[in-house]
């Protein structure tokens, strides 16, 4: 069963200077394309990961999936409902209760003036549900104690706060949780605890995760399916095994090569060339062509589509990659 269907999703941001400055300084409008024509599907009870470097649009996609941002073009369907077009408030309410989010910064994502009990119960309280004992139960499920419910967020460490965020996300009994870099602010040993917790909860509650991260190793550990983003475009999609053993897109290859290896003692790698281009003026054709060792004239003029490979198990957007099914 597909729980999330993202179809030709595009998002622009207007980053122009104010109107008056534009007129007086004769500046053109500046439109930043954060996400460009991205399509993917997430199976129920699976972990779909989006990886990419800064500016790849991964967080923007996450925000659109949970409904914090409107898509500029394309649409997102969650359990076959398009939240931005649906008019029946009951259905909207029901779908919203099924989506939750875990944020990157455990210090900013909890209201510092609220007791933990109220923070965790808010998703339910906001809908007028019964909250008695709920926070205590959830706290114990995420490995904290029920007595913590009356404390304030500042009394907890980063890892514990992230556990509280997980508890809040679970409160409304969601099916889908979007995790935006949930462990990148945490230390390694704490990260291990949180990742393990998320894995346990997934089995226990039958959750689906959209896991957004820049950390390839975390993604490899967590995901069932990985989408690699570059400059707002999905360039490759495959299972972790396929992706890490045999990356097809030159960008994925570069990314995997550049990632530090724990057993790469004194490895002298050829450092990757170039930098991520300006998303306001992206390169023509394939966005990766200025840095790509395989680039041809076609790559400069034409944007490759994300197509399935012969085995039908993975997709890649590259003219030079392995033979594609038409």
């Amino acid at each position: 069963m597909t729980i999330v269907k993202v179809d030709h999703l595009t998002r622009f941001f207007d980053v122009s200077k104010p109107w008056l400055n534009r007129v007086t300084e004769r500046l053109p409008k500046r439109i930043l394309t954060a996400v460009s024509d991205v399509s993917f599907e997430i199976e129920e009870r699976s972990v779909y990961a989006l990886v990419g470097e800064s500016g790849s649009g991964k967080s923007t996609i996450g925000k659109m999936v949970v409904g914090l941002l409107n898509p500029s073009e394309g649409h997102i369907k969650i359990e076959n409902v398009n939240l931005f077009e649906e008019t029946d408030p009951q259905i909207i309410e029901q779908i919203r209760a099924n989506i939750q989010m875990i944020f990157q910064d455990p210090f900013a994502s909890l209201n510092p003036r609220w007791r933990v009990r109220d923070v965790i119960a808010e998703p339910v309280a906001a809908r007028g549900g019964e909250v008695k004992g709920l926070a205590e139960k959830l706290l114990e499920q995420v490995g904290l104690s029920a007595a913590d419910a009356k404390k304030f967020p500042h009394e907890f460490s980063g890892g514990q706060r992230q556990r509280i965020c997980v508890a809040r996300a679970l409160a409304s009994g969601p099916k889908l949780i979007v995790c935006d870099e949930p462990t990148s602010a945490l230390d390694v040993s704490v990260q291990a605890q949180v990742l393990n917790l998320m894995n346990d909860l997934r089995d226990e509650f039958g959750l689906t995760y959209l896991f957004i991260s820049h950390d390839l190793t975390v993604v490899q550990h967590m995901a069932d399916r990985i989408g690699v983003l570059y400059l707002g475009r999905l360039v490759e999609e495959a299972t972790p095994a396929d992706l890490f053993e045999n990356p097809l897109h030159p960008y994925t290859q570069m990314l995997l090569e550049a990632a530090p290896k724990i057993d790469g003692f004194g490895r002298d790698l050829e450092p990757p060339q170039g930098e991520i281009p300006d998303p306001i003026n992206p390169p023509s054709g394939c966005a990766y062509h200025p840095r790509c060792p395989l680039a041809t004239a076609q790559c400069k003029s034409e944007r490759p589509e994300l197509l399935q490979t012969k085995e039908k198990t993975r997709r890649v957007a590259c003219f030079k990659a392995e033979p594609l099914s038409a």
Binding site: V66, G67, L68, R96, I99, Q100, M101, F103, Q104, D105, A108, S109, L110, N111, E122, P123, A126, R168, S172
Partner: peptide, 9 residues
């Protein structure tokens, strides 16, 4: 992010 979390709810 806590405000975003509240909006999300």
């Amino acid at each position: 992010e806590y405000v975003q979390a509240a909006r999300l709810i």
